[in-house]
């Protein structure tokens, strides 16, 4: 489904702020894979997701999604294939627009936007149903401006929007990090549900090791811009935090002391 082939990205090359963000990163996802991504700060997790989403161009390497080489496609053209939820709950929705208008924008992801009506009656019913499934009471507030919703509500809405037009790939970039623990748990549960119901291929960055172990069928750990650990299937099911620490120690060697601190338990 997704193939990353030898990706490289360096920020601010040739300056004092030079930062090698991705270094020979390769990854192959099968359809239906739900991968959790962990790693310390600056390991390249978000950089990898941004490279896939096309926020900027990579320096070297190829990105192939669903058989299509998207390496040279700008962000808005990749959007037809990719659903995204950001860390900042404010980033995924348009605050000055109504709830149903936001959903309507998402429903038309990857399609030509012409001069037909922006929100139709028929689709309103779909939205109402989907919103009802969130159990947040949003189905009665469809004409409310999204800016009036809470962070958790906006993040749940963004999730719904990301899956409304079934994406080939769902990218969750620490999408619960900015929420309080109970809201975060709800949004995570919702993410699981949406991934399963739609049988999506998904990648989820998290700073929480338990979440990384509990969710998805595959776990990768990143360090210094490439993947240092890749566990899936039965092995992943049996994974514990302790084992993860040890594995990390094996692979990363001496760095374990510093990085352990950065991975929250």
């Amino acid at each position: 489904m997704l193939k990353l082939e030898h990706l490289y990205k360096t920020f601010n090359p040739g300056t004092i702020n030079e930062k090698i963000a991705l270094s020979d990163l390769s990854l192959h996802l099968k359809p239906g894979d739900f991968v959790t991504v962990i790693g310390g700060n600056g390991a390249g997790k978000s950089t990898m997701l941004n490279a896939i989403a096309g926020v900027w161009a990579v320096d070297k390497g190829r990105i192939i999604l669903d058989g299509e080489d998207i390496t040279a496609l700008p962000e808005h053209k990749r959007a037809k294939l990719i659903g995204r939820v950001f860390q900042d709950p404010m980033m995924g929705t348009a605050p000055n627009m109504q709830l149903e208008e936001n959903l309507a924008l998402a429903l038309r992801r990857g399609q030509r936007r012409g001069l037909s009506w922006g929100v139709t009656k028929a689709e309103r019913e779909i939205y109402r149903e989907r919103l009802k499934s969130l159990n947040l009471g949003l189905e009665d507030r469809m004409t409310v401006k999204v800016g009036l919703l809470s962070g958790g509500q906006r993040q749940a809405l963004t999730l719904l929007m990301a899956a409304l037009q079934k994406p080939k790939l769902l990218l969750l970039d620490e999408h619960t990090a900015a929420l309080d623990p109970s809201t975060a748990a709800k949004v995570l549960e919702l993410s699981d549900k949406i991934v399963q119901e739609n049988q999506l291929t998904a990648m989820m960055i998290t700073h929480n090791m338990s979440d990384a172990i509990r969710h998805g069928n595959r776990l990768i750990m990143m360090n210094e811009g490439s993947i240092i650990l890749d566990i899936s299937g039965e092995e992943k099911k049996k994974l514990t935090k302790q084992m993860l620490m040890e594995k990390f120690a094996q692979v990363a060697g001496a760095q374990v002391d510093s990085d352990q601190v950065l991975l929250s338990k």
């Binding site: 924008l105 998402a106 992801r109 001069l115």
Partner: peptide
Amino acid sequence: TEQGSALRATGSNPSMSRAQG
């Protein structure tokens, strides 16, 4: 319209708009 909504979304949240294509 769809196009007009896209224009309003651009002003409201450009990063969201790009993510929505």
